[in-house]
Amino acid sequence: MASFDPAEAPDLTDEELKTLDDLKSQLEQMGRERGRLIPMLQFVQDSLAYLPPPAIRLVADHLEISASEVYGVATFYNQFRFNPPGRHPIKVCLGTACHVKGGEIILENFERKLQIKDGQTTADREFSIDRVACVGCCALAPVAIVGETLYGKMQPSKVEGIVLRVKIEKEQQERETRQHEPNLPTPLPPTSE
C-alpha cells in the first residue's frame, strides 16, 4: 500500500499550479457521485503525474467529502503516488519470474547508483525508482523500464550504462536546443535485447 507523509510533499511548480487550476473546471464535468472518486483520482494523477495535497483537497471539495477520506482511499491503492515521479521514471520488475532471476539485485544497483530508495525521486527530479509487479514479458526476465524503454535480460552491470545514457542524451538535447530553433524532439533510444 502506498505510504504518505505530507511533510515530504514538495512545493508545486508554476506549471503544476496551472494544471491544478485547469483541473478545477474539468472535474465539474465528472459528476459528484462517490463512485466517481477513483476515476477522478486517476484523471488528476494523469494530469499531474502524482497527487499533491492541493489536488487531494480539490477532489475532496468537489465530492463534498473530507480530505482524509480521500487520502484513505488513495493510499489504499498502489496506483496512486504522492511524490512527483522523475522525468525518467525507472521501474524495476519484481514479479515472480523476475524475482527468481534476480530482479532485486537490479533494483539495488539502481538504488546504489542513484542514491535513492525504491519509491523515491532524486532531488533534481530526473530519476525515480519504483518496483512493479510483472510487466508482462517474463520470458525476458529480469526486466527494467526506464522512461519508455524496456530493457530485458537485465544485468546489474548494465545499470551504470543505462543511467549514463539518459544523462548523455539529456545533455545532447540541451545542447541542441541551445543551438537550433525550433526545438526538435529527440527520438527514443531503441529497446535493448
Partner: peptide, 11 residues
C-alpha cells in the same frame, strides 16, 4: 500485444 511491444515489435 504488450509482450510483443516489450520485446521490440514497434521497432
Amino acid at each position: 500485444a504488450t509482450c510483443g511491444i516489450a520485446a521490440g515489435a514497434q521497432e
